[in-house]
Structures are given as C-alpha cells and as structure tokens.
Design a binder for these strands. Structure first.
Lengths: 176, 176
DNA sequence: TGATGGAAGTTGAGAGTTCAAGCAGAATCG
DNA sequence: CGATTCTGCTTGAACTCTCAACTTCCATCA
C-alpha cells in the first residue's frame, strides 16, 4: 500500500475510502509541484539579485503602478495580490523602508490606508521590468506552443477561481 | 507606456527592446501567479492545521517514504524536492525535533548523512494522506477535464525541465 | 605523503511569513 | 445617543527561508 505522494498512489475500492490519485494524476501533480517550486525560486532569485526584492514584492509594485493614482487601499492590494493583510502590512513596511512605497491616510475612512507607489518605486520598475519579463519568457513562454499557453491560462484560471476568497473570516476573508 | 505586470504590457518595435508580454500572455501569466499563490497557500494551511507542518515538509516525508530503506542522502533528497541543501538542513532539523525523521551517518562517506523516516513519520503520513489528497483533488483534479490534466502535466514538465539544475555552482548546483 | 581542490552538509544572521491578538474607527440598532 | 459588533490594518513572536561562510572529508595528482 503506497500511502502518498505529495498525494498517495492508486488502489481505491468502491466504498468511502479516500480517492487516491491515479499514477497519471500523480505524475501530473508532481510535475506541477516541481515546476512551481523551481519557477518561483528562479524568479525570486532573479529579482532579488537584480532589483533587491522578492517576486511577491515586485508584484505589489506592479499592481500599484497600474492603479488609478498609483495607489490602492491596503485591503484591495492584498486581495488583488492574493495575500493576507498581515503579510501585506509587513511587506509594505519593508517597501516603505526601501523608499518604493509610501503610506497615506484615507480621507473618507480614518482606519484606511493607501499604499502609494513613489517615484523611486516607478523607477525601479522601469529599470528592472525588462530583465524580469525576459526571465519569465525564457522560463515559460518561449518553451510553450501557443496552444499550450492558452491551455495553461484556462487551467490556471479555473484553479484560481476555485480557491478564491468567497465569504469573509478573521484575518483572511480571502483564503477561505 | 505600460511598464509591467509581474511582467509588462505589449508594444514592441523591431530592434533590441525587451519583448514585453502581449495582453494575452499577460493574462495567462497572471492566472498562473494567482493560482499558484492561492494553491500553495491553501495546501500549506490545510497541512499546517491538520498535520502540523507546511506543504514542503510533507513532501519531504513522502519522498522518504518512497525511498528504498525509507532513507535518502541529504543531497539526493534536496535535489529530488528541488530545494537547496541549506533549506533542507533546516527542514530536517525541524522534522527531527518533531520526531518524524532521524539522521544517520553514511558508512561509506563520513561526510554523508541519511535522512530516515521514523515510524512516527510514517504514522503521520498514513494519518494525513487522505485529507491531503482530498484537498488536492478538490482544488485541482476535480475541476479539470482529463485533457486539461494531461495538458497541465505536459506543460509543467516542460517548464520544470527548463529550470532544472544543469551544472554545479556554489551552494545550489540545482537552481542554476 | 602531502598539497590542492571539490563535495557533503551545517550554521548563523537577516529577511520574509504566519498566526493570533489587539486597537481604533465605522456601522448597526435599540 | 450608547452599546455592540464589525471592519481595516498593525503588531510581535514563532517559524521558515536565503545567503554566505565554514568544517569536514574525499579525490586527484605530483
């Protein structure tokens, strides 16, 4: 009896026993885990080395850069980046220290805070975007056919949807 | 001029300028990032809550469970899990504290160490595998058609291959 | 044998993340 | 209005990960 993989191997009867993954499903799952691990690691390294920040932080700057006044409420930013507010708080504190983001009080809600991309923040993006795109291209797009790219998009969209926030809850309204 | 996403938006001329991602490529990339973030987070939470360890650690136990004597050299384990040796060292130290793994000296190479899955380690896997598989199934496999599953496998295999270790280097022979 | 370089693994400090708790302001309602 | 509850965001401690040394042992070769 093989127990698991990052999920176990086949051999399911009919009754309530857990539906293990088939061999094929397992191969798929392992490929996913490996690629995801290697990829995130690769991008983290690339950005840490070149831009001095991890991939997630870079993503935050990008979201801000695209937002109306290059600003977003903390909660909005957290939701859009799919991270907890707590994590965001720490992250923004760090980005503030680096001078790439600044906090601003929200006039309409005294509890609220805006995270605002600074000029230096924009500069950092301008400077390192090319390297980052190229890393992404090299690791992913250059290796996939147009059909595969399309497939990947559909698949990931479905998975993401299934895990979306839904209803509220303690510190993580999102993340179920 | 849109600068970036977690990679910038289109508008490329002909000369050397960075080849930005097209709108469609960007949508794909964002979906990927979102799904990967939500998924890893979801599994980490599930396992942390139920089994008292993060997803990566669970993966390590699984690798050991499948290995010949339920043991693997540190370096082998690190490579197979796609993580650095340093990270593994810390991880195994923690797993040892929890009593799920034990270290053993390698007879043939005095520098070498085996990570060995303990009886408690196996027990933990047996106990929590069902919940974990079910989480993976719910989040991924149950939502995809067989074709999509196959596609996902191929795509991720390609990406993983492209990022594989190749030649040696400092502390991270893998991870380029 | 002894020097030299490489390989296996660990370590410590700093950075990032999680979790539970906490504070202040907003909203609801009697 | 005052009490109660909810929302927005922050905090601190515990934990994990990264990065750059560092130690020990193996391998090569003169």
């Amino acid at each position: 009896m093989e127990y698991m993989n990052t999920a176990p191997v086949a051999s399911s009867a009919s009754a309530g026993g857990p539906r293990w993954l088939t061999d094929e499903e397992q191969r798929v799952w392992r490929s996913y885990i490996e690629a995801a691990t290697l990829l995130e690691d690769h991008l983290d390294r690339q950005l840490q080395r070149d831009a001095g920040m991890p991939h997630v932080y870079y993503g935050l700057l990008v979201k801000l850069a695209e937002a109306p006044q290059r600003r977003l409420r903390m909660t909005e930013l957290a939701m859009s980046a799919k991270i907890t507010r707590s994590r965001l708080s720490h992250a923004v504190a760090r980005l503030e220290k680096s001078g790439w983001v600044r906090r601003e009080d929200c006039p309409s809600d005294k509890r609220g805070q805006f995270a605002v991309l600074t000029e230096e923040g924009q500069e950092v993006l301008r400077k390192h975007a090319p390297g980052h795109v190229s890393a992404v291209r090299q690791a992913v797009f250059d290796r996939l056919t147009p059909e595969q790219q399309k497939s990947l998009g559909e698949i990931m969209r479905i998975v993401a949807e299934g895990l979306q926030p839904r209803e509220a809850g303690a510190d993580l309204p999102w993340l179920r």
